[in-house]
């Protein structure tokens, strides 16, 4: 029992020290809460956000739950709200669940924006994303439709079905593809962000639909998994090169190999660092009651597109030519 107590006292002393380092200096504090912590996507967003914080002289706290779980995310935000923050940026795991919380925050005078994934029915002031999900879905659908010659079977692979950005993008892609009578979307497979599941989904996909012509991935993990499976199948002689076109949302760091091999010709990417950076700036504008106008510029990024309450930081199309020039 004594050792237990000693252990606890030790732990709490440790956090005293950590804690005192985190005390705010009396300036503004913004809290950015991603869907989860861990993936380097968010580490880069944090980098951008903290950089903006330094430029503006505000304290930026970046923290998220360890699992992409909306109740833990909500708990975290609630706790930070009672700590006292002035600006809040969220990438919500569940767009519906976050609505009451956003309303509460706004009632308390906190400026709220969403980034990476929206909560469109909430009262958040702005949504900062790479491009509109609608536009993304349409662009991806158009690209893959063209590549397969406007006819054939296509499958969707996504991470999870609760995230707003994926659902909206998929719906838009589906709608766009329905314009082509000879194209069918034969399956939509979620992977719950489990890499092995994506891999298995892709493997089973190409077996289930031998006439499959295209795979569209809606989160960063899907195209590389599909590409890996296809490359292995080609090596085993089960598929011909170029038989299946893969594209979708991806990032240079994990798609590099497949882009260079030609299995992926083009992926739709964007820099999460810009999202973090812009969110902090927009929060600052809101706090200082500055207007957010279309085409406003930011030091590191340049011009930003504003459409209603959405701010687009821009998509980056990655191909074999420019894949090495990115660090994300």
């Amino acid at each position: 029992m004594k050792r237990k107590m000693m252990g606890w006292i030790f732990v709490s002393m440790f956090f005293c020290i950590v804690g005192s380092a985190v005390r705010s200096e009396g300036g503004e504090t913004y809290f950015l809460c991603p869907k989860t912590l861990g993936p380097v996507y968010w580490t880069l967003a944090e980098r951008g956000a903290k950089a903006a914080g330094e430029e503006l002289g505000v304290e930026v706290i970046f923290n998220g739950p360890s699992e992409a779980n909306s109740s833990k995310q909500i708990n975290m935000i609630e706790d930070m709200l009672s700590k006292g923050i002035q600006g809040l940026g969220i990438s919500p795991n569940d767009a519906q669940a976050i609505k009451p919380l956003i309303a509460d925050a706004i009632d308390e005078g906190v400026s709220v924006v969403t980034f990476d994934s929206d909560a469109p029915e909430s009262k958040r002031a702005y949504y900062i994303g790479p491009a509109s999900d609608k536009q993304n879905g349409k662009d991806m659908a158009d690209y893959i439709a063209k590549k397969i010659g406007y006819k054939g079977e296509i499958a969707f692979m996504c991470g999870g079905l609760a995230a707003e950005n994926q659902v909206a993008t998929m719906n838009s892609a589906r709608e766009e593809l329905s314009k082509y009578p000879d194209i069918q979307v034969v399956a939509t497979l979620p992977s719950n962000n489990d890499m092995q599941k994506s891999y298995e989904n892709a493997t089973t996909l190409i077996k289930t639909y031998p006439d499959l012509k295209g795979i569209l991935g809606f989160t960063g993990g899907q195209p590389p998994a599909a590409a890996e499976v296809i490359e292995q199948a080609i090596a085993a002689g089960e598929l011909k090169k170029g038989q299946i076109v893969v594209t979708g949302v991806g990032f240079p760091s994990n798609c590099r190999k497949y882009i260079k091999n030609g299995t992926l010709e083009l992926i739709f990417s964007w820099e999460s660092e810009k999202l973090g950076y812009t969110s902090v700036y927009v929060l600052n504008k809101l706090r200082n009651k500055q207007p957010v106008e279309d085409g406003f510029t930011l030091p590191k990024i340049g011009k930003l597109n504003v459409e209603g309450t959405s701010i687009w930081t821009g998509m980056t199309l990655v191909t074999a030519e420019n894949v090495d020039s990115f660090d994300f």
Binding site: T36, G38, P39, N192, N193, D194, M195, Q196, K197, Y199, G221, P224, A225, E228, N254, K257
Partner: peptide, 12 residues
């Protein structure tokens, strides 16, 4: 699988 990461490997 060709890709591993701390938060997507071995979840289930």
């Amino acid at each position: 699988v060709g890709t591993v990461s701390a938060d997507t490997t071995g979840l289930n």
